[in-house]
Amino acid sequence: MQANVSIVFLNGVGQVEAELIRNGNSIDMRATDKTGTLQFPEVLDEDIISLNGACTGNGEIIIDIPVLPPSPVNIQAGNFFLNFIVGK
């Protein structure tokens, strides 16, 4: 399945790096420094979508497939680090 990771930065700018990890291996990496969507075309249950980044205002992260923790996740000014387990 495809996972779309949408990032919205408000009241400032931001940057996010996303990595798809499976069985201890890096499968795919995406990054953006503006509001937009990062696409992972081949995601399996129990994959991990690992995110890190920073923003100067606030924002929201939305993943359009079932994940734990459930999205959307709000972010505030500062650094953020998140891991999402796919299929939960």
């Binding site: 990890i21 499976r22 069985n23 291996n25 991990i48 690992s50 890190n52 650094n79 891991n83």
Partner: peptide
């Protein structure tokens, strides 16, 4: 370093979740 910690946790999760 904090980013690497988060990534290492992701790697651990992907290896142990099954």
């Amino acid at each position: 370093q904090l980013k690497n910690f988060n990534r290492q946790v992701a790697i651990w999760l992907s290896r142990n979740i099954a």
